[in-house]
Design a binder for these strands. Structure first.
Length: 274
DNA sequence: TCCTATGTTGTATG
DNA sequence: ACATACAACATAGG
């Protein structure tokens, strides 16, 4: 479910817990979301710690806590990835975790819950004075000044033979873009999802750059703020149901698997060019 | 029963 | 080594 804006929306669901102590940590230790993570150490470190702040970068979230017993500069770094079905929510403090509630941070006035039915999500953890590599090495935000037309063009050249739809899903360059955002971007830029990434000319690359930024901005503003329904001028509201019409041309939308993912496009405005 | 799902990753192949 | 394609992961819902 979660892409850039949905992730930021879920991150903010835990805002009521910032500035408050964690009294108890409850986990399902054998859940797949803890693969590669020392869950016992996570419990030890976060119990009694003060939850200070949070951030989101692409689809990755970070929660930073200060431990009582460690040196003043040390922090506990909790990374959360929501996978396909992860969600963050708040429950009353006496809440008991259900089957899919794999991590619960219990505080005096509330419980912060991470749920994930399909277990494609992930929990990361570190204790250190500076951010761990899995956070510090994340690629630059698509709305930051370091994502430029040249950055984009260089990446497309390296992935020249892959369909542009598959390339937009690569998190190493397009953090936060997922299946619906990729389709929305290509539809707005009038680029066919099967178009090889290396075959885009300079005007197409500029259009792609512009629409990547626009879709990120719009998604964060509309969905990321309060999960508002996007307007019908987006592809978003039409892409899920087969047989629906392109909101710009009125022509029938097409669906096919491209890059291993269900893809929706408007053949009336997205043409393969050779 | 079969198919689908807003994601990543390990592995095979070129 | 690098780029590409795809099965696998686990569960719920239509």
């Amino acid at each position: 479910m979660p892409e850039l804006a949905e992730v930021d929306y879920f991150r903010k669901q835990w805002n009521p817990g910032l500035g408050h102590r964690i009294d108890e940590v409850l986990i399902h230790p054998k859940a797949r979301v803890f693969r590669g993570t020392d869950a016992a150490r996570l419990i030890r470190a976060l119990t009694g710690a003060l939850l200070e702040r949070s951030e989101a970068r692409g689809k990755q979230m970070l929660f930073v806590a200060r431990e009582k017993t460690r040196r003043a500069n040390d922090r506990a770094w909790l990374g959360l990835h929501l996978g396909m079905t992860g969600e963050l929510r708040v429950e009353p403090p006496d809440f008991s975790p259900a089957r899919h509630d794999h991590l619960v941070l219990r505080q005096a006035a509330r419980a912060l819950v991470f749920q994930d039915a399909r277990l494609f999500g992930r929990v990361l953890f570190a204790e250190s004075a500076t951010a761990p590599a899995w956070w510090a090495k994340l690629p630059p935000d698509l709305l930051s000044v370091s994502f430029t037309v040249k950055t984009l063009a260089d990446f497309l050249r390296r992935r020249a033979r892959a369909p542009i739809k598959a390339v937009l899903l690569m998190q190493e360059r397009f953090p936060g873009i997922g299946n619906w955002m990729a389709d929305e971007i290509l539809w707005r830029a009038a680029i066919h999802p099967r178009q090889p990434a290396g075959s885009l000319d300079a005007p197409a690359i500029r259009a792609l750059y512009r629409e990547i930024r626009a879709v990120c901005r719009n998604a964060l503003r509309v969905i990321g703020t309060d999960w508002s329904e996007p307007p019908d001028t987006w592809l978003f509201n039409h892409r899920w149901k087969k047989g629906s019409a392109c909101p710009r041309t009125g022509a029938k939308l097409m669906h096919a698997a491209i890059g291993g993912r269900t893809t929706c496009w408007s053949p009336a405005r997205q043409k393969l060019v050779t």
